[in-house]
């Protein structure tokens, strides 16, 4: 085995490694190269965020338009403040849009669904979404259902 052959094969190993890594990046994890996306931030207060967590999706008419950046506790009114980051290409959302915590399918992840409002003014960086609907808790739902059954 000459040195030339060995060097060629080692070069082949390096290329194979690079190919494998790029397959993992693009085909398996679906990485987006256009990381130059700009975002603007809005906040919304929820009474109950359920199992929502950072990086959960924010969707509008079924399309993903952003993600949850962080969830923090608001001491004064015992609620959870969710900070959303929304792609700046979606900058025409009316200021009275509402946010609801929804569930994907029966057992899926929770995400935030936005419903479009009617005002002329749009959400900008730092806006607050006033109308919110908390996550559905199955136990509360069943409790309410049983209560209404016994009343009849």
């Amino acid at each position: 085995m000459t040195m030339k052959w060995i060097e060629t094969l080692v070069g082949g190993l390096m290329i194979a490694g690079a190919l494998a890594l790029s397959m993992l990046a693009f085909k398996v994890s679906g990485i987006q190269l256009s990381s130059g996306d700009n975002y603007y931030h809005v906040t919304a207060d929820f009474e109950n965020v359920g199992s929502l967590q950072a990086r959960s999706k924010v969707s509008l008419s079924g399309l993903v338009i952003g993600e949850v950046e962080k969830i923090e506790y608001v001491r004064e009114d015992y609620t959870a403040r969710v900070t959303l980051k929304i792609k700046s290409s979606y900058d025409n959302l009316p200021i009275d849009s509402t946010a609801a915590i929804l569930t994907q399918g029966m057992l899926g992840d929770q995400y935030i669904g936005l419903s479009v409002g009617a005002e002329e003014e749009s959400l900008v960086d730092g806006s607050v979404i006033e109308g919110t609907q908390s996550a559905l808790v199955l136990e509360e739902l069943i409790g309410a259902f049983l209560l209404s059954m016994t009343k009849e």
């Binding site: 490694g17 190919l19 494998a20 890594l21 397959m23 993992l24 085909k27 398996v28």
Partner: peptide, 15 residues
């Protein structure tokens, strides 16, 4: 050097 490269190759061929 080899181990991370081999890991990536193993992943890719496994998928």
């Amino acid at each position: 050097i080899s181990m991370p490269i081999l890991t990536a190759i193993f992943c890719a061929t496994g998928v």
